[in-house]
Design a protein around this nucleic acid. Sequence first.
DNA 1: TTGTAAGCGTTATCAT
DNA 2: ATGATAACGCTTACAA
Lengths: 344, 344
Amino acid sequence: MCKRFHLKRKTTILDIARELKTAPSTVSRALNGNRRISEETRKEVARVAKRLGYMRNHFASSLRSGKSNVIGVVVPFTDSSFFSSIIRGVEDIVNREGYNVMICQSHDIYEREVKCVEALLEAGVAAIAISVSSEVGNYKHIEKASELGMPLILFDRVVEELDTYSVMIDDYRGAYEAVTHLVSMGYRKVALFIGNREINIFRERYRGYKEAMAHHNLSWNEDYILEVDSSVEAGEAAAKKLLELSDPPDAILSSSDFSALGAMQFLQNRVNIPEEIGIIGFSNEPFTGYVSPSLSTVDQQSQKMGEVVGRSFIELQGENLKQSYPVKTLLRPELIIRESTRRI
Amino acid sequence: MCKRFHLKRKTTILDIARELKTAPSTVSRALNGNRRISEETRKEVARVAKRLGYMRNHFASSLRSGKSNVIGVVVPFTDSSFFSSIIRGVEDIVNREGYNVMICQSHDIYEREVKCVEALLEAGVAAIAISVSSEVGNYKHIEKASELGMPLILFDRVVEELDTYSVMIDDYRGAYEAVTHLVSMGYRKVALFIGNREINIFRERYRGYKEAMAHHNLSWNEDYILEVDSSVEAGEAAAKKLLELSDPPDAILSSSDFSALGAMQFLQNRVNIPEEIGIIGFSNEPFTGYVSPSLSTVDQQSQKMGEVVGRSFIELQGENLKQSYPVKTLLRPELIIRESTRRI
DNA sequence: TTGTAAGCGTTATCAT
DNA sequence: ATGATAACGCTTACAA
């Protein structure tokens, strides 16, 4: 029991100070790499700390210093390859600097997102990185966090009215290049599956599609533009609609790999892919490489995006907030050309 | 600037106490739902707290009480559907009880796993849930955490020597039922793709396979048992080997959906699936439903597993640790029968 | 039911 | 380069 007591009773800087017959403040400084401490004491302290199994109490440290080593990340979901790669990217960067990541899922529901932000504020994180839910709502919770002085980084689903750090993919360019690729493969009548255009990413993709079509002197039928959810079922239904048109398209650009897959499955036994119709998706979900024919797609650089979020955070910690202006990063998407559009 | 000052200066229970001309302890009690506080004061306190925008300082709270509302989870990866579903399950349960989750990825590397555990210990989490990396190593870091009094919950990749709470899937049963299903479909010569049998999950699947075969009076060729990594490429190579045998199998049970897919892709243009050869995987990765033919698989109840982990944690918090004995939960896997084995 | 006061472990300030 | 001391905001005996 005596042993048990010893194990449970955590060693503090006081124990180390006592052992070395020095002051706790000296120990604290030595442990924190304060440079007005002699090399000798620093080593002594490190040695004793190690021997006694000392572990810093982050609660006490954060309480006193007002600083935290945890950064909060709010995502709609973690079980999508896109967001989990982002998280991985963030971790890769910030762990190296001694920060930890606390993840909160909004499930794409506005109210839960508000709860997430509140929880992270209460938890006293050093910063919050957030990809807002697609449910329409106001952004009071984000403004509140900002007013409280919380450093914010928005990523992917960005609210442009908010003047914060942001990291986005160039969706305009992604759509533009996808259309250009289709045209270079000889497709002419390109249909578009798109999400709610009130959301920035879809608005941009729509714009990219339109301008690319115009640039290649291709007109398009309004019937070719379909609002389609990100699901296999929605993709099937949309493909059915397209086939029933009097003048069906010869290519589909989908804002989602899932609806692209749905379309592909519906079309597979009716027309030849890619000979008669080309299909290209968005996101580079892992399955796009496995299905047959493999699905062309626009990769969204998710891990890279996470890394930029992480670096933005480190940057934010370093500088004086009041002097800084928020940096907006726009990442370049990468076209992944696979069998579903390769008809040369 | 005055405004800025007000916004940044956080309100504390002292401010609330001053406002109500009462003691901070009363406010603390009221806020914490202590029942020896009159309903009246409780309401008053809640009202003022809300008006002043009070937020509990968790650092101070945890420092004083020695309790934390964060639970640490260590997984090999977050960007796999299996582990992110587990995390989602954990969150669903513990968020409701006011806990947050801190996630740490080991990248399946022993050293990083040790670092994760240390970081979580330092961060003062209330408990650690961990799925150990598959790299061989010792478990000193886990034992150390346990000795320090940290509640532990192991899941999926469990170390049986450690006497902690654990949540696993019944891999034996999963393999057994998969073989039984194959036999019921008329397959007789079942090959097995298996991982490193030093790891509990693979050992159990191997055992399930052997016993099911024996139970159905089926002998099997040692050439049918292949050690195959969890990758599409490894699956292709393994399928090639099998086809080259003088007496090739008529079914494959794979320990991984990815290698099952690889096998399927290799076999697709050579033999008919499922008529001539049946294939069944393990994990129910999302793509298994999308590929063609769709892939039968053993679902591992990942979200459920996460929920059990979360509930185990809540349970652990409630009881007196010294009196408790660790609960071992064994979840029942679910056979998902799809086109790749449905030949009736 | 409420108030008083001590203290959790650290860091910042001031002094030496 | 080091020491003494106060304070961060909260909880919890103990007292009333």
